[in-house]
Design a protein around this nucleic acid. Structure first.
Lengths: 105, 105
DNA sequence: GTAATGCATTACCGATTGGTAAAGCGTTGA
DNA sequence: TCAACGCTTTACCAATCGGTAATGCATTAC
C-alpha cells in the first residue's frame, strides 16, 4: 500500500478532514480539545481517526505530560499531496480562469 | 452528502485515481480503451468506477455512437478541490521550501 | 501508594465498498 | 430484422470501514 493510497484513504472521511481543519486553525490540539468539537462522537472514535491520520503521515503527535498534542504534518502534504495536485493544476487553473470570467471579474 | 465528500470518497480508490491519470494523459478515452489498462478487472468494474467519478463530478461522459467517451471534468476540480487545497497551501509551501533546502538546491 | 485522568487498543457490530457474474439496453452492421 | 457490440445495471459476496463499549496503560494528583 503506497503512501499516496494511505493519504487519500485518510482524506476520504469528512470527520478526518474536519480534524485537519481544526488542527490547521489552532496549530495544535489535544485529543480532548478535539473531542469537544465532536459531541456526537465518543472519545475512542476520535482517537481512531487520529491514528488513521497519523498512519497517513498527515498529523504528528507529541506527548506532553498525560496529554497528546496533535498537529498537521506539512511535510507529508508537501511530499505526497502537492505533486499529485500539480498534475491537475493545468486543468483547473484554466477552469478557474473560466469561473472568474463568469463571475464578471 | 456534500460535493466535497463525494469528491474525496471518489479519490480514495487507487483504481479511480489511475483512471483520472489515464484520462488526463489521453484527453479522452472510451470504457473499452480504459479497460485495456486494467487486465485484472472486469469491464463492469471499470464502469462502476466511472459512475463514481461521474457522480463526484470528476469526469464527464459524452455518447459517441455506441461508445461512451470519458474526460476529466476540470470545472469540478477547480470549484471543489482547489479551494480545499488552498487552505493548506501555506503549510506545504513552507514545507516544500524546506525539502528543496535539504536537496541542496 | 492509590485513585483519577487522558488517551490507545481491542473486540465487536451494522453499513459501505470493491469486486464479479449475469441480465438489460441502446446502437450499429449484416 | 436481428445478431453482435459496448456499456450499464442489478444481484450478490467478501472485505473494509466508522462507530461504540470495554479494557489497558502511562501519567499526574491526592
Amino acid at each position: 500500500m503506497s503512501e499516496e493510497d494511505d493519504l487519500f484513504r485518510a482524506l476520504a472521511d469528512p470527520t478526518r478532514r474536519r480534524i485537519l481543519d481544526l488542527l490547521a486553525e489552532h496549530e495544535t490540539l489535544t485529543v480532548g480539545e478535539l473531542a469537544a468539537h465532536f459531541p456526537e462522537l465518543v472519545a475512542s472514535g476520535i482517537s481512531k481517526h487520529l491514528m488513521a491520520l497519523r498512519a497517513a503521515g498527515l498529523v504528528t503527535a507529541t506527548r506532553q505530560g498525560r496529554h497528546q498534542r496533535y498537529a498537521v504534518d506539512a511535510d507529508t502534504m508537501a511530499r505526497v499531496l502537492a505533486p499529485w495536485v500539480a498534475k491537475y493544476d493545468a486543468y483547473w487553473s484554466a477552469a478557474l480562469l473560466r469561473l472568474r470570467g463568469l463571475a464578471g471579474e
